[in-house]
Computed example of a mutant assay.
Amino acid sequence: MNAVTHKTAAKWLERFDRAAVALPQPRRDELRQELAEHLEAVIESGEDPDTAVERLGDPAEIVAAEGLPPVSPARARAARGLLLLPLTGLLYLTPALPPGPLNMLVILAASFTVLGLVLRAEASASTRTLGVLGALAPPLAGLGGILDKVFQAGGLMTQEPGRAYQYALGTDSWVIALGQLAMLLLGLGLPVLAGLRLRRQETPVDTRAFLGALALVLTPAAGLAAALLLSGSRLGTSVGTMVEVPLLITALACAAVLLAAGVMLLAHRGLSLLTKVLVAAAILTAPVGVALLAEHEVQPGGVSWDAGTPPTEVPRDVPDDRTLPLGLGLLLVIALPLAAADRVHRAEKDEVRNSR
């Protein structure tokens, strides 16, 4: 039996792997091999592995004795690019600069340049994933803002004998406000978060748990933005008719990513049953919440008559009170995913604390 197959030694080496993520890969592999060989020699000599592991001590202290290397130049360049990337938001936030092909071309060029820097940076899988999302967020947020402005310009005219009704189709005002805020958070906040993470040294983290929790944390912003755009695509504009199917496919792809992240979390052994139930509930109900928020409302925008007196009856197209669907949608899209992410984060902190 060697150190890899022995339960106590294997668990200690897993703790070392998490703690040594900040070390350069050649030195990390060399040090791990030395420690594994030492544990194998102890096991073969008949000494109690628990005693040997206790004598080695905390893996984090062994890593600290190596000295943490400075952030690599490639990683520093990627961090600077991510921190400067939100400046492109001026191209779709400033009213004096109407969104157009030239603006989007500049945003895309900046984002893909930063994306190349992130892919070349020396970072763990979790940090690199966050960097990629941060690099791609600004053009997606800019495109979403452009589509939202186009969608809200829609209208509908219905005619009856002797009169013509003109209705303004509009997304619920709360969904508009929250959806636009979500696009700002994605386009401006996510690159900054990724840049700050690249600027500092790696900390021991379970990659699967980090990516799963990240998907849950991003669900509110992505869900609100998707609900706003899906609602706007049905407001009667030609652009909305053209992009409704691509938007739906994009929303389904986001749901698939969330489902994959949830599967990773549900397969994680360090999470309690209650945490896994909360994660499963958040994953399965988030698309339902987006669908509830994406229902647009129809309001009378004005009435013109060929003759006679203006009508006093409210058109039948005006829906009933949507307070309950709106509240339930916000609960499923915002509150539940964030609660699940918090549970996962707490469980990971407890696991790291108990492993020391």
Rank of each mutant, 00 (worst) to 15 (best):
G89K: 06
L13R: 04
L278K: 11
A137P: 05
I334T: 10
P337A: 05
T113S: 14
V106P: 03
N2A: 01
V344F: 05
M183R: 13
R197I: 12
A291R: 08
Q180R: 07
A226Q: 06
L248E: 07
A347E: 12
L228I: 00
T207K: 01
V352M: 14
R28P: 00
S272W: 05
Q33L: 12
S272A: 10
V175Y: 00
W174E: 00
W305T: 10
I283L: 10
S124K: 05
P337R: 09
P300N: 06
P26A: 04
A125C: 03
P204A: 15
L119T: 04
A125S: 08
D350T: 08
E202Y: 03
P220V: 04
E297I: 00
L190V: 12
V175R: 00
T309S: 11
P69D: 13
V243E: 03
L56D: 06
V192P: 11
A110R: 05
T312A: 10
R269N: 15
L188N: 08
E44T: 11
L35D: 10
R316M: 14
L119W: 03
R15A: 15
S45R: 13
A19S: 13
R128S: 07
T275E: 13
N103H: 10
T88L: 01
I43Y: 09
G100E: 08
I62Q: 14
L214A: 10
A182M: 12
L102N: 02
G100I: 03
H296Q: 05
H268C: 02
A20C: 04
A286F: 07
Q33G: 12
T171Q: 00
G240R: 06
T285K: 07
V243Q: 03
L136V: 09
D48H: 10
A164T: 10
A226W: 01
P325D: 11
T323A: 08
L211P: 00
L136P: 09
V344P: 07
L258Q: 09
P287M: 02
V239M: 08
G57E: 03
G240Q: 08
S72P: 15
A65W: 02
